[in-house]
Simulated assay, not measured.
Amino acid sequence: MSEVITALLERRSIRNFKPDQIKASELETIIKAGQFAPSAANQQSWHFTVVQNSDLLTRISKAIRNIFLQSGNPAYVERAKAENFSPFYHAPTLIIVAGDQKSIAPEPDASLALGNIQLAAHALGVGSVWVHSLRQLFTSEEGQALNQELKIPEGYTIFGSAALGYNAGATPTAPPRKEGTVTTIK
Results as ranks from 00 to 15, higher is better:
Asn147Trp: 05
Val4Cys: 10
Glu142Arg: 09
Pro92Asp: 00
Glu107Asp: 13
Leu56Asn: 13
Val51Lys: 01
Ala98Ser: 15
Gln101Leu: 11
Pro153Arg: 05
Asp109Tyr: 13
Glu142Trp: 09
Lys151Ile: 05
Pro172Thr: 00
Pro176Ser: 05
Thr157Gln: 15
Gln21Thr: 03
Ala168Thr: 01
His122Asn: 10
Ala41Leu: 09
Ala24Phe: 07
Glu83Arg: 04
Glu142Phe: 07
Leu134Ala: 14
Ile5His: 05
Asn16Trp: 03
Val50Asp: 04
Val97Asn: 05
Phe138Lys: 15
Val77Cys: 03
Leu27Phe: 09
Ile96Ser: 03
Gln44Glu: 07
Ala37His: 06
Asn116Leu: 06
Pro106Met: 12
Ile14Trp: 08
Ala113Pro: 05
Leu57Asn: 04
Asp109Ile: 12
Ile152Gly: 02
Ala168Glu: 00
Pro108Gly: 07
Asn16Cys: 11
Ala121Cys: 07
Lys32Cys: 00
Glu154Val: 09
Ser86Thr: 01
Ile67Ala: 09
Leu134Thr: 15
Ile152Leu: 05
Gln21Ala: 06
Phe138His: 14
Ser140Val: 14
Arg79Asp: 01
Asn73Cys: 02
Arg79Asn: 01
Lys102Asn: 11
Glu149Gln: 15
Met1Val: 05
Pro153His: 04
Glu3Trp: 13
Gly115Met: 13
Asp20Leu: 04
Arg65Gly: 04
Leu9Ala: 09
Ile95Cys: 05
Asn16Tyr: 09
Gln43Leu: 11
Glu107Tyr: 14
Leu8Phe: 15
Asp109Gly: 08
Ala63Asp: 10
Gln44Leu: 03
Ile117Leu: 12
Gly125Met: 07
Ile14Leu: 08
Ala110Thr: 14
Ser45Phe: 10
His132Lys: 13
Leu146Trp: 10
Trp130Gln: 09
Ala121Pro: 08
Gly160Glu: 04
Tyr166Arg: 08
Ile31Thr: 02
Asp109Gln: 11
Gly143Ala: 11
Thr173Asn: 12
Ala91Met: 10
Ile22Phe: 03
Ala174His: 13
Gly143Tyr: 10
Ser61Asn: 15
Glu179Val: 15
Ile14Asp: 05
Leu57Phe: 06
Arg12Thr: 01
